[in-house]
């Protein structure tokens, strides 16, 4: 069975899927990623599907599951590089990709993760920090 490599870049894990995955390969990727998130303490996961010419319901579910698992492990997942034909087909198939955040490319994905982390930590709003109510209001 082939395995999809997971690269660590700073605080982000980057997965670029370059092969036509069997279902078993997809499940293994899910498990490998969960382990790497915990082992590295990374707070972001970018899944690059530029090379995928289809996303069927199995891979779609894998992407949703990875997003949910990483959320529980305190990491944000962004799926990048979806081809237009893949997006059209996914919608017609009826797959909603629940809970998945998307960006056009890896660079935008990294920006999205950085922005999300800043929001969560309240870095953008010094006034709230002063008033002491920052943590609960948003």
């Amino acid at each position: 069975m082939e395995r999809v490599p997971i690269l660590k870049i700073g605080d982000i894990l980057l997965v670029s899927i370059q092969i036509d995955m069997s279902d078993q390969t997809a499940v293994t990727l899910q498990e490998d990623l969960a382990e790497r998130i915990v082992a590295t303490g990374c707070h972001g996961v970018i899944i690059d599907i530029t090379a995928l010419d289809i996303v069927d319901s199995f891979v779609g579910r894998m992407l949703s599951t990875i997003a949910s698992i990483s959320k529980v492990l305190d990491a944000e997942t962004v799926v990048v590089g979806m081809r237009p034909a893949v997006a059209i087909t996914l919608v017609e198939l009826g797959l909603s990709l629940n809970g998945i955040r998307t960006a056009l490319n890896v660079e935008r994905g990294m920006e999205l993760i950085a922005a999300t982390r800043d929001d969560d930590l309240g870095y953008d709003d010094p006034e709230d920090v002063e008033s002491g109510t920052a943590a609960t209001s948003s």
């Binding site: 279902d23 010419d53 289809i54 996303v55 069927d56 319901s57 199995f58 081809r83 237009p84 034909a85 893949v86 059209i88 087909t89 017609e92 198939l93």
Partner: peptide
């Protein structure tokens, strides 16, 4: 995919057919 490309289906139609084939083969 190979056959769909050979009969010159459009890219979107190739994608739809291969996706349907993947679901049904599974």
């Amino acid at each position: 995919r190979t056959v769909a490309v050979a009969v010159k289906l459009s890219l979107v139609d190739q994608t739809k057919l291969v996706t349907a084939a993947s679901e049904l083969a599974r």
